[in-house]
Design a protein around this nucleic acid. Sequence first.
DNA 1: TAGAATATTTTGACTATTCAAAGTAATGAA
DNA 2: TTCATTACTTTGAATAGTCAAAATATTCTA
Lengths: 231, 231
Amino acid sequence: MASRTIENYLKQLWLQQQESRGKYVPMGKLAALVGVTAGTATTMVKAIADSGLAKYAPRAGVRLTRAGEQLALHVLRRHRLLELFLVEILGIDWSDAHGEAEELEHVISETVLARIDLLLGHPSVDPHGDPIPSSAGTVEAPVLCSLAELQAGSRTAIVRIVDQSSEFLRFAQTSGLVPKAAVVIEHNNPQAGAISARPDGKPPVILSMAAAAKFLVRPCPTAGKQRRKRS
Amino acid sequence: MASRTIENYLKQLWLQQQESRGKYVPMGKLAALVGVTAGTATTMVKAIADSGLAKYAPRAGVRLTRAGEQLALHVLRRHRLLELFLVEILGIDWSDAHGEAEELEHVISETVLARIDLLLGHPSVDPHGDPIPSSAGTVEAPVLCSLAELQAGSRTAIVRIVDQSSEFLRFAQTSGLVPKAAVVIEHNNPQAGAISARPDGKPPVILSMAAAAKFLVRPCPTAGKQRRKRS
DNA sequence: TAGAATATTTTGACTATTCAAAGTAATGAA
DNA sequence: TTCATTACTTTGAATAGTCAAAATATTCTA
Ligand SMILES: [Mn+2]
Ligand SMILES: [Mn+2]
Ligand SMILES: [Mn+2]
Ligand SMILES: [Mn+2]
């Protein structure tokens, strides 16, 4: 099928399209995500477009076709199931799982994947709280708010971590701000530009708004202004 | 380090050298094992030799250097640990494990491998009874005799299966002739060119001498000529 | 020992992926 | 609107692996 190189391009494209709500992804952005020069990205994207997996608009960007999306979601499913497997079954560190899965996602067979899925009990989210696409190639993307949006005194639970760099994940872990952790917001004064959040059984953690925004939570008691993405 | 292509060449070379007791491996043989044309093998072997992993003698063959052997053994360790892991932990079919491991062996990290090794309890043999090289790069190669060499009435246990094609392994499995299985030789008349072996709790199996020779056993009551390995 | 058969090596060509550098278009500040 | 900056595309070259076919060397056979 698709080479591992192309699988990586497709996956990054899909992720980026989520961020930018389906907009054409500019070459420079894609190149940076995949880790190649812009010229290389242009060349590859043209090849990918020729095989019908994406639409390429010169000087505007790329966008996945339905077929490209499907393929990307299968790669993403492998990636996220593997991450969970590495953490849950093998005891690999949370912050290392991503890098390991980045390689494994291209060589695992359907058979092995099915076994992993079974062993994990058909999980719906990975260790970072990211949803695992179904084997049919669908994902649900629940709209969540972040820790930054909660008022002092509110109580909620971490659902998902947006920044998945090793360093940030290590910080999140030692702070106790991991998916499923219950948290109480102790202070949140917009003027201060920082909040204090206390995970159950842990000391409170001080977070800048920027850092707080990286933790998505549920429920999101700031009912009123439920932000919704355009659909 | 070495590319997956080169890892495959090295591993096949090592395995073949075991067969041929350290002799130079001819190009044609290596090419067939790796699955490329002879010309390709020649080209690759010259590159491998240039990097000091093998000695290449034109028109005679190739042989691994110490460095090449070490690398090969690390690949083999990954391969065999993965096979056992796939069978024991993921419940992958015995006869499929090899093919899966063939890919995974090139992308698994030291960290993940260590975790697998631990989870399996530092095993010494893979599902086919093949010894797993140590992380230091050593293997013991016990000298075993085969089912074909036992006299009628002897009782022994299968240790290792030499033919690892999917078809043969499936046959071995359904017959009950798997590593650790206890077996009684019911008939072995050299003139007949075939034997009858009965695994514990299973019906007897008829095997040609060629097929019987693919099952290595221990103990090997044909005492007399117990060859021992140098230590 | 002279072919014939076989094994190996060489050569030329091709694919996939990449980069550096040069060329081109789009953007935006003055 | 005019240039400078920035983003993107093209071009030319490189690397790793591979094959097919031609050229050689070896080994067998008669
Ligand atoms: Mn990847
Ligand atoms: Mn993840
Ligand atoms: Mn392999
Ligand atoms: Mn094996």
